[in-house]
Write a protein that binds this DNA or RNA. Structure first.
Lengths: 334, 334
DNA sequence: CTGTTAGCGCATTCAT
DNA sequence: ATGAATGCGCTAACAG
């Protein structure tokens, strides 16, 4: 078994109170006995029992972060930044993966709450009132990102709608006159929290509507290739596929290559996120870039500030910009 | 504040002991009072205080996993599988990232130990006796993967040496007669635990030595491109670059493309790991494939079995095989 | 300067 | 069938 403060007390012939004073160097102790206690503790390799400490102190120096999964590189990058900031501020983090399963997410959140994490960073799959009430009633600091909740939880992300509007504007400026928006997550509307996909979708519709001669289609189903096969027939070099994330764009690119459809000569292609692996892809993908590390860092920062009862911004939107890659080019002057 | 069992006891006019009997449905309680207590607990949304429970029960149902980082997709895949298995068995996991920093790793491990995790899955950066003694003395179940320790810690991974031997054999069978082995991590020899890179390196040397007419070079430095520039001059279509991991292979491929050196026509290229993103890469990369999900799952399985005082295998090696992609082809018959 | 006491929330043994 | 008491390991308030 591990050495306890009680044992140190016995060995030093003092009481636990004194040992505590020495260990946490608090006033009111004879320098000599302090030194002695510290030496004994050192020799025995004493380490305070964190759980016992937490129990009495009322905090655990622990954060939880709920992600869908970490297959999409954007989330592993985000976690990395989150973890680094948490560590710097003295916290360790539980990473739990909801796999977009509402029940599992709920179970996990309850579990984190039971463990008295000091705060939770949440990418929510749930969206109903009951869920939010649970979070609010827990009185545990929460910060959300990606999908939004209606409650008063701080939110850190990007301006999705504007980002897609910018994307459409960019494609339009390059001469594209037919856009296919691909966003399979939209199909989960009503079943899950799809705030992000929806905002991006709205941005797409709005932006297209503002351009009089812009044809556009939306693909929002799991079996998106089947639908794309149909659409691709009515496509020309002024058509572009705009994907709601790089992972879809990569799938599409792969598929287009297999069909010997050349990008960008025959069709334009654009992704979203600018994940690291893009640097190995040919043709280089046009995408929406934003600093996901900053999101991860801010998430931890805001969460911890909130834990410390500091005032935190209700909404923190990170800058984004369209990154022009080879997969989009019609205006040959570029 | 949260509701406690004590409050329930008061409300029901019984003592905490009785409440406990009801909550953990243990024998020796009147069915009626049980129902009553359970109902009250339900209404008040009672949830046991996990820390307090852990303190008295002596376990936390928590696992820790120490990774370098999760930039390399192989590790995020591994974590995902680990987390899933842990959850199925009732555990939640701390993910900590050592960034290959020995001091940080040590700090993190101490932190995990302080928090009384029930077990730790460890990809070690440290390697000395002192470190191992710390682990052993903690009396906490540990399972290692990737880099090895000398102590009696269960190990789950692949047979690295054999995998590289197989790679060399494969390249040789395809007609390659000059191999450049690229493994920057080797440069950290003596400074960090580089068991994996070293085993792979040994496999390379051994295998090459067994083939009389096989020229070979090794690049083992951070600034590997500089060295590659030199070597590439003495290269021909019977040369191949064998990388210790896909991430290096991707970097090299990118660089070769930028230099207009065609793969595989002018030089062969091979990676290691078969990370998911490879499916988007052209030419498709020849690599060593193995089931990393299985490693993650086994890691959790073995760790938990160990926690349950079951007998666990000292070493679990997952199968691997060379996956033939377009980046290697000399024997045009294939 | 140091000892005593109480309590964090729960589990468990021993009485009754 | 229930109550009372003890302890997990530590912190903190109060005495002395």
């Amino acid at each position: 078994m591990n050495i306890t403060s009680k044992q140190i007390a016995e060995l030093c012939g003092v009481t636990r109170g004194t040992v505590d004073r020495a260990l946490n160097n608090r006033p009111g102790i004879n320098p000599e006995t302090r030194v002695k206690i510290l030496r004994v503790a050192e020799e025995l390799g004493y380490r305070p029992h964190f759980l016992a400490q937490s129990l009495v102190k009322g905090h655990t120096k622990t954060l939880g972060i709920v992600l869908f999964d970490i297959h999409n590189q954007i989330f592993s990058q985000l976690f990395h930044a989150f973890e680094a900031e948490a560590r710097k501020r003295g916290y360790i983090v539980y990473l739990v993966l909801s796999n977009r399963d509402k029940d599992l997410e709920l179970e996990y959140i309850n579990n984190l709450l039971d463990r008295r994490v000091d705060g939770i960073a949440l990418l929510p799959t749930n969206f109903n009132k009951k869920f939010e009430t649970l979070l609010t009633r827990s009185r545990t600091p929460i910060v959300t990102f990606g999908n939004r909740l209606s409650g008063p939880f701080p939110y850190v992300w990007i301006d999705d709608k504007q980002a897609i509007r910018d994307s459409v504007a960019f494609l339009s400026s390059q001469g594209y006159r037919h856009l296919i928006y691909l966003s399979p997550p939209l199909m989960r509307k009503g079943k899950e929290n799809i705030y992000v996909p929806e905002q991006r979708y709205l941005g797409f519709i709005e932006a297209c509507d503002e351009i009089s001669d812009m044809r556009h289609n939306v693909i929002a189903q799991k079996n998106y290739l089947a639908e794309l096969v149909q659409l691709i027939e009515k496509t020309d070099s002024k058509s572009a596929i705009l994907c709601s994330s790089d992972v879809y764009a990569l799938e599409i690119l792969k598929w287009l290559k297999s069909r010997k459809i050349r990008v960008p000569e025959q069709i334009g292609l654009m992704g979203f996120d600018n994940i690291h692996v893009l640097k190995y892809i040919n043709p280089s993908l046009t995408t929406v870039d934003y600093n996901v590390d900053e999101i991860g860092t801010k998430l931890a920062d805001i969460l911890i500030n909130q834990i410390n009862n500091e005032e935190v911004p209700a909404e923190t939107l990170i800058a984004h910009h369209v990154l022009h890659g080879e997969s989009v080019t019609l205006d040959r002057d570029l």
